[in-house]
Nucleic acid binder design. Structure first.
Lengths: 215, 215
DNA sequence: ACCTGAACACCGTTCAAGT
DNA sequence: ACCTGAACACCGTTCAAGT
């Protein structure tokens, strides 16, 4: 049997509260302390500073996307990447305010190493793997920034597209091409656009194996 | 002849100082005020709040990349996109600490509208245009986060790759594929990787015109 | 309109002192 | 080891008052 808790507060409880506060709009050491029933200074027993909390949180969030989706032998390589990417996108977009921290901090974390190793199992060329990571994380970052403009919780995707479409007024004289593509632009931040772009990226990466790059 | 200045400080001077402070590591209203020779409260004559300064700065930075590169008739469409993307990357990576703000703020700004319009001139499918934007901005965001770890000014690219390579120790038992690709991974944040991925993305987007997506 | 001086309501972090 | 209470050195923003 394990020993009972020696702390009145577990580090995981601190991270739970930290994620709540990020979702609510602002993470402060003082608010975090009161939420877990401590004084601000006591937090420094668990983490050396604020940035360590954010880094740990980012890593934990990254771990929530099911990595085994990348190993599923019943799926094609491209399908496995799509399944995992969609899972990661869903996990991260559930906490849009945490996304900027993930780009900066989490991809040096321990979980990121596992993600990279699994991705290399599907896409053995490291340059291709990184290109996929850039596309997926870039999409999520841009979508998260947009999502923060909506309330919390955000309205469903079709409503968000309609809302952007309604607000989006541009001068057809000055921006004719943008004007002509308004509907597509309003749907930039959508699961459909995410999947479409991912398919094109993966197609380009496959093509590199059978035909050399032409410059 | 134009009228003389009616203000002792121009808004552009505020943005100049703001960029300096971001590059130095922290932008505060108080430090910004003293740098332009004002009291903190006086800044609110020029901008409604701190976020407005950041947004204006992001838009100004975006304007520094030469948009005419996208219209150069002597270049192929893909070459035009590459030239502009490399120019944008250079402008933004010169100020890595400002990059997170750009992802969040600048792509609603006035300059971003011009960028989008010009990109649509080269790549008429809005979905393809957005996919390129995601790749380019995603790359820049990940590179900027990495670049901040190095000093200021950062060492040249070959030295950065060598430094990452030297520090990067991983267990070959636990992460065999990552271990085997160490050299490529250390070169993730490089002009070469950026161009390689961009070529693959553009190839995938071209392919979509002659062959339908297979699911 | 532009600016100062002073205040208000916050921050992250440190640290002696207690248990 | 864990935690409190109090302090230190900061923040962004507001606002009456001056020019």
């Amino acid at each position: 049997m394990t020993r009972g808790p020696r702390r009145s507060v577990q580090p995981d409880a601190v991270l739970d509260a930290a994620l709540e506060l990020i979702d609510e709009g602002s993470l402060t050491m003082r608010a975090l302390a009161t939420r877990v029933g401590l004084t601000p200074g006591a937090l420094y027993t668990y983490f050396p500073d604020r940035s360590a909390i954010v880094a740990a949180l980012a890593d934990r969030l990254l771990a929530e996307a099911d990595l085994s989706l990348l190993d599923d032998p019943s799926q094609s390589p491209h399908q496995r990447i799509e399944n995992y990417s969609l899972a990661l996108r869903e996990v991260l977009l559930a906490h849009p305010a945490a996304v900027p921290a993930i780009l900066g901090a989490a991809f040096n974390g321990p979980v990121a190493l596992h993600v990279g190793e699994s991705l290399l199992g599907v896409l053995p060329d490291a340059r291709a793997t990184y290109t996929v990571m850039v596309y997926v994380l870039g999409s999520i970052a841009l979508e998260a920034a947009d999502l923060e403009a909506f309330g919390t919780p955000p309205p469903p995707e079709p409503d968000r597209i309609a809302a952007r479409r309604a607000v989006f007024v541009i001068d057809p004289e000055q921006f004719p091409r943008t004007y002509g593509e308004i509907d597509a632009i309003a749907a930039y931040n959508s699961t459909g656009q995410f999947r479409w772009g991912l398919h094109r990226v993966l197609a380009g990466l496959s093509g590199s194996q059978q035909s050399g790059c032409q410059h």
